[in-house]
Nucleic acid binder design. Structure first.
Length: 423
DNA sequence: TCTGGGGTCCTAGGACCC
DNA sequence: TCTGGGGTCCTAGGACCC
């Protein structure tokens, strides 16, 4: 049974276009949180020479010259559009793994070659019709090959967005045209290592002996190579298990030097992490706080300062988490440093139902705390994020990130629905 | 001046246990 | 004087993904 990978084309840019048709045929870029660097580009923006990941300040003149539209990232909008795309796919092929916000793997029930390609076409048309988002579909015998088929479908316009990579010779031809660094699972470091061995395309990689791959790229690399050869090693993963670590972090909107702002932001990120933790009905046993200064000012010098604490009792109580996190932040804080960012990470995550009561202190995450947190989440769910929050999070929160070019929450907020006028 | 925010898995090495 | 071997757990670090 072949795998298909459905991938939204330039997803964030496409989402912005659905609700703002003036962006059609115009180069569009989406900036990261804090409007720092480019994380998505329309096809026109790619052609105009905007590189992925480039800082916004480096392309200001290009933005003016090419009349590029700029948007801050609007995750409320993209998340909601993603859900609609996934629901549409599921209605055609229910055996689905939602791999990321803009990609899904599905299993295609066995049938003739023509029928398989047709399912791909049907998915593409349905998603376009229901959501306005263009997608490409790559189909092959393994997930890694389906990824490559998808890339090829995107590149070759004559395929109109769907490619079933089926026959052995075709697979080999496509692998020969695929740069080794474009293989799923080969990042920058492996690419450089492979190129030093004169392995430059996916076909060459697929012909390397197992033992060599095993010792140079470990078992993960070996799976990749087998998948390139057509042996499926990775299946559809449904409903991923709970997260093993929960991270909440943001860059600051301006360089932070004061102890107070550090404490406020760490307190606020911890609150957010606590919400995520409770959303998956878990408790955490450890908290790590990291304060980050600029790595560009003194290259080579330490710029991250982190510290962890193991909690006496695993908990999901925001107050307890905040107390420990801000304690760590105070220890890490040093007068005179200029901070750019802070992280709060919760780890040692276990389901609420598996907490062992502490025989001696009797102070594990109790029923009372649990009910308090539940009410808190309910109120915030109803009246807006963090309406009720620890005072230590601060009121004005001057360190908050910048989002200068934010579009509206067209699909998730009654106040920001699109207005349509008949003429 | 200005450089994202999440995650995953694997490996090596140390501590500790019997 | 001799100084094992097998196992687990934890952490740090490195690779990768979108």
């Amino acid at each position: 049974m072949p795998f298909a990978l459905i991938d939204c084309n330039n997803f964030y840019a496409s989402c912005e276009r659905v609700f703002d048709p003036s962006l059609k045929n115009r180069p569009v870029v989406i900036l990261s949180n804090n409007d720092g660097c480019v994380i998505a580009r329309s096809a026109e923006a790619k052609e105009a020479g905007v590189a992925m990941g480039i800082p916004e300040f480096k392309i200001r003149s290009l933005i003016r010259k090419m009349n590029i539209a700029v948007r801050s990232s609007n995750y409320a909008l993209y998340g909601d559009m993603s859900m609609r795309v996934m629901e549409t796919i599921k209605s055609i092929t229910p055996d689905i793994e939602v791999y990321s916000i803009d990609e899904a793997f599905v299993k295609i029930p066995v049938s003739s070659e023509n029928e398989t390609t047709n399912i791909g076409k049907r998915i593409r048309e349905a998603v376009r019709k229901h959501t306005g988002i263009p997608v490409s579909v790559g189909i092959a015998s393994t997930k890694t090959l389906a990824k490559i088929a998808n890339e090829t479908a995107k590149k070759r316009s004559e395929l109109s967005g769907v490619l079933y990579l089926n026959h052995r010779e075709t697979v080999h031809d496509v692998l020969k045209e695929t740069a080794v660094g474009d293989v799923w699972g080969v990042g920058k470091n492996y690419r450089e290592m492979l190129e030093r061995q004169a392995i430059t395309n996916a076909y060459q990689l697929s012909r390397m002996p197992d033992s060599w791959i095993r010792s140079n790229m470990n078992v993960v690399g070996l799976r990749t190579v087998w998948e390139l050869r057509g042996f499926s090693c990775l299946g559809i993963e449904k409903g991923r298990d709970n997260k093993k670590g929960i991270l909440s972090s943001r860059s600051f909107g301006f360089p932070v030097k004061s102890h107070r702002n550090i404490i406020e932001s760490v307190s606020s990120f911890t609150t957010r992490a606590g919400e995520k933790l409770r959303a998956q009905k878990c408790v955490a046993s450890a908290v790590t706080v990291t304060l980050v200064t600029s790595k560009y000012i003194n290259p080579g010098q330490a710029y991250k300062f982190g510290r962890s604490v193991t909690l006496p009792n695993p908990t999901a109580n925001t107050s307890v988490l905040v107390k420990h996190a801000t304690g760590l932040a105070s220890m890490l804080f040093e007068e005179g440093r200029t901070y750019k960012k802070a992280w709060v990470m919760l780890s040692g995550i276990v389901p609420e139902s598996e907490i062992q009561a502490d025989l001696f202190s009797g102070s594990s995450y109790s029923g009372k705390e649990h009910r308090l947190m539940e009410s808190l989440d309910k109120v915030n769910g109803k009246y807006g994020k963090q309406l009720v929050r620890p005072a230590s999070n601060g009121i004005e929160q001057p360190w908050k990130m910048k989002q200068q070019y934010l579009s509206k929450k067209y699909t998730t907020s009654w106040d920001e629905l699109m207005r349509v006028r008949a003429i």
